[in-house]
Design a protein around this nucleic acid. Sequence first.
DNA 1: CTCCAGGTCCAGA
DNA 2: TCTGGACATGGA
Length: 266
Amino acid sequence: MRIKTKDFNLEATLECGQVFGFRKVSECFEGAIGGASVRLAQPNGFLEVEGKIKSQEVSDYFDLGFDLTPVYTHLAADERLLPAMKKFKGLRLIQQDPWEALACFIISSNNNVKRIMGIWSNLSKRLGEEGRFPKAAAIAHAHERTLRELGLGYRAPFLSRTAQFISTNPKYFDAIREAPYEEARARVIAFPGIGPKVADCALLYGFHKLEAFPVDVWIHRVMRKLYFNNRKVSEERIRSFAKKRWGGLAGYVQQYLFHGARLGVI
DNA sequence: CTCCAGGTCCAGA
DNA sequence: TCTGGACATGGA
């Protein structure tokens, strides 16, 4: 299947750190969208999709209907952000599964991307269906010892307890999705192993709350460098700065900043 | 061996 | 409210 796209960069979108379930295999990305295993490529502008899936579902997943113009307006208006915009034009925040996002970012704390992807893979092979990321119930029923064997370390009880809560309160995500950002954030922070940063990742990536601005070590460093003259700044001040400057699209700007910082282009 | 990785939690000032 | 240390694990 071939899908026409406007302003879409598959590689930047899947490698910018918002999702951990795609693997690059010779110019293709292998992973899953919803319940379908897919292989994706973008050889000459078009998005090529292999797998038992409708084009609408792919389009929804990558949020292809979302107009990036206001994001570009922010990026282009700031000399400091211009390099990231040029490099990653077409990077989109996707509509991934809320549970997967929440779980993956519990795993992400004090961890590195390579290891997070490894743990994603271990969990999916051991507890998931057909190698996809396991449902909350599957993790809830697994023994904590099993999670440790898969590399979770001290995060095992955090993930286990959160999975138990979600699998027994399946409607809870609806409440989070419907709540305004600040209230949703407070609800997510209440989960074990989730603090302000992981909560913002879950809200931005799992619930598409585009005002969420996760401040991790990379964002902290790059924001300090670009906007605070390398002085000490609290994460709270960075957050309020971002909110004031980029408002409801702060999370989008954050993604360009994060990817740019990690790749060393800004 | 030490340091670090998309932090969080807890205790003590 | 702010700060320091512990926390599993594996790669550099």
